[in-house]
Design a protein around this nucleic acid. Sequence first.
DNA 1: GTCTATATGGAGATAGAC
DNA 2: GTCTATCTCCATATAGAC
Lengths: 208, 208
Amino acid sequence: MNTAKSRLQAQVKALRIEAITGAVHGLLAGKGYEAMTMDEVAEAVGMSKASLYKLFPSKESLAAQAMVQVLDQALALIDRLRDTPAADPLDCLQQLTRWAMQTQYDGEMPSLPAQNSALSAALLAHEPYVERLLSMSLKLGVWVAEAQSAGQIDPALPADFVLYQLYARACDPVLGVMKDDGRFDREQTLAWMIKVQFDGLAPVDRSR
Amino acid sequence: MNTAKSRLQAQVKALRIEAITGAVHGLLAGKGYEAMTMDEVAEAVGMSKASLYKLFPSKESLAAQAMVQVLDQALALIDRLRDTPAADPLDCLQQLTRWAMQTQYDGEMPSLPAQNSALSAALLAHEPYVERLLSMSLKLGVWVAEAQSAGQIDPALPADFVLYQLYARACDPVLGVMKDDGRFDREQTLAWMIKVQFDGLAPVDRSR
DNA sequence: GTCTATATGGAGATAGAC
DNA sequence: GTCTATCTCCATATAGAC
């Protein structure tokens, strides 16, 4: 086999994987992990289930790949925000949280079941996923610490608790309910969510 | 058939249903709706699956029954809180939210999948469930309105948005993560959750 | 009314031909 | 490398005997 041919093959394979990841992303966002079937994925990308299994060994691995993609999007946004001179750490945290909530509101955030030990185990065994999750937590941890030093976030709250709160907003059911309600538009809803979250994390106002 | 006999039968049946509901409650809290199987329920109450299906026509109906039980617990707490002279509306809302979060933290809150249209439809078709949900929303809506009038909750927030926020705390993933983390005890965690939620809902402090 | 045994269907995963 | 056809398991639900 010559090099040019194998490079082409590798490119084709990469494109295939990209297409699959996109399809899984959409399906996970639309109906969730449990309801997504391998038949659907295969049909969405126009290949047979058997071929799909040649590229991904399991359904869990598909979910992991999709989550890696989302984490990469978040990490890219984090880097852009960090390069914004006018933004202080709290602004950055708000922008990132806003992006996550907007993605969820728009039905484009993949959703995995919280209670599924098999899936959790598979995710934690998937190194690219863990690596990105860790990387993100480190970067956000810095912002949280800075915001606490600046008195924008209550220093009495553990940084990890603050992180958990922000992560949780990416799957907050309030967003979907507000959308279904229909009386409020997206920007208004997101503004209220941001207000509630970050006023809640702010230091206690002793004068009140 | 004489009356005494049929009364006894009705009592036995009621006890059976109570036992089933309790078992379902525990299973839903422990592993969630999807992972709970009818075989497990049958074994937990010591009857065959076929007999179980004589009392409940479907798995959805079991979940609905368990949710009704939880709503009844919440409604009972609401009535107790309302009879507490020293408690203002905000106190009542905080106490109820605290109870829901504590129940979740302790692994005793039944959990249903958010994305399952079949189950949602079954719940909304189950009148006892809808009736209690409506009743609860009305009672909480009064407290929210009063707390807004008293300046304890931001009047700019729609009352329904505030309600959605409070309902969402009953299934907030932060609670489970904090428990798994292990560095913080339950009371501390609940105190932080309450602080973040209700400081977030409080009116904006213009002087800050 | 309660049980054993079975129907029914769905979904993850694989065998084996081409 | 891709597909068709199939395996295997499991879960909801039911039939039919006692």
